[in-house]
Design a protein around this nucleic acid. Structure first.
Lengths: 223, 223
DNA sequence: TCACCAAGATTGCAGCAGCATTGCGGAGCT
DNA sequence: AGCTCCGCAATGCTGCTGCAATCTTGGTGA
């Protein structure tokens, strides 16, 4: 873990560096805004600690400057300027957090952790098949990023097949995927769905084919 | 944008709901921890505001409980318990930010924006679609830099659609984005919003179209 | 190999659930 | 007070979907 500390009070900066090192954090330190931008180009930081009052200007100006380069590095502003409106100002230009001096190192660490916490990758329930990306949770299908809208029942059939891509899916399984126990079907409705679905997938160039296994069920195969 | 407010002071809660509403945020409110967990299971929130002193316990216990379910929803703790060590405590159990009472609503908004902007968050700072630039945090929409002002609810619908541009958004998701659980709708209010929104987008030449996917939901597509 | 037939594929059709539109009136804001 | 927003409901429309009729396919047995 590596962070950039932009701070002109040498004593505080040194104390912080030591404290952070105890937490296994590598700290780069500069006193000047001009150097700061340069440093962010040369290194990838996990976070940036930023003072407002600096020898060469207001520290906050650094934030939009950095954001414009596309970096979303978390920034925590550390400053004596801690009036409510000043905090709002800091957060609104893109800071991720704002701490008034003086502060406990423990609190800084806690806020650092808060800012750095990344989401555990949410269960990615995305299915792919051919050129399609299927999101059964949101009921959406895209072919090469072009959205493909399918009627509800056809979509359910497709999702059920894609979930077991390259494996046969029993006819009864498909029926269960599309109809609840209240909806009985006494016809070849499922076959009709398959047929219409095939046509739509073909038209969209989805890169898949639905094969039939006689007397058993169906199978989705990539081409 | 939808948030959950866990707060037992009714007066503060009401005031916050109103204030947040003015910023286009839909607020669900509960006074009890037990209900809170239930609500997070039933809805997807963009953020959670959490009081510490609650009738049925210490609010902080809610945080690990929520995290254990895999949710990484940003949490801001709002409390009178604002000693440095108490703040550390809050942040260390997984809060994303910590604010002492009393506070300015402006600062809360600023911190909300900061928290939602974090890479961990799903919320985007700016959404683009067609010729539009949408800033859901500031409730502004521009078409080729010309501001377009939309009624609150239409804007919520648009933002929800734009966030998942080119993907279907379930009807229920849209309803959740626009209404909190207290506001029941027994009509086609959502359809009406869609209809009016379409007309406005057309008049403004926004370069997008809202498609319907029968029985599923809607989809925002660029032209 | 060929005929036979059951299983599957396709497609027109009608019914209807779901959607679009719009006027109205109440509520809320300035 | 005047305005916009917004929920509601009436109306009309669209296209999904179940059904059935018809055609095609592929497995089976003599």
């Amino acid at each position: 873990m590596r962070i950039l500390l932009i701070e002109d009070e040498r004593q505080l900066a040194d104390a912080l560096s030591v404290a952070l090192r105890k937490h296994g954090i590598v700290t780069d330190h500069t006193m000047h805004l001009a150097d700061a931008i340069e440093l962010t180009h040369q290194n990838v930081y996990d976070a940036i600690l930023l003072d407002r009052r600096l020898p060469d200007g207001e520290g906050l100006t650094f934030i939009p400057e950095l954001r414009r380069t596309g970096a979303d590095t978390p920034i925590i502003v550390l400053t004596a300027r801690n009036e409510p409106m000043e905090r709002v100002e800091g957060l609104n230009v893109g800071a991720d957090d704002y701490m008034g001096k003086p502060f406990l190192v423990e609190e800084l660490m806690a806020r650092l952790r808060a800012v750095l916490r990344r989401p555990a990758s949410l269960a990615e329930l995305h299915l792919t098949a051919g050129r399609m990306l299927i999101d059964p949770l949101h009921l959406s299908v895209t072919v090469d990023t072009i959205p493909l809208d399918l009627p509800r029942r056809e979509l359910l059939v497709l999702a059920a097949l894609a979930k077991r891509k390259d494996k046969t899916v029993l006819r009864s399984t498909l029926e269960a995927a599309v109809y609840n126990y209240e909806e009985e079907i006494q016809s070849n409705a499922l076959d009709a769905h398959i047929s219409r679905l095939r046509k739509r997938l073909l038209d969209a160039g989805a890169g898949v084919a639905i094969h039939n296994i006689r007397g058993v069920g169906y199978l989705l195969k990539e081409e």
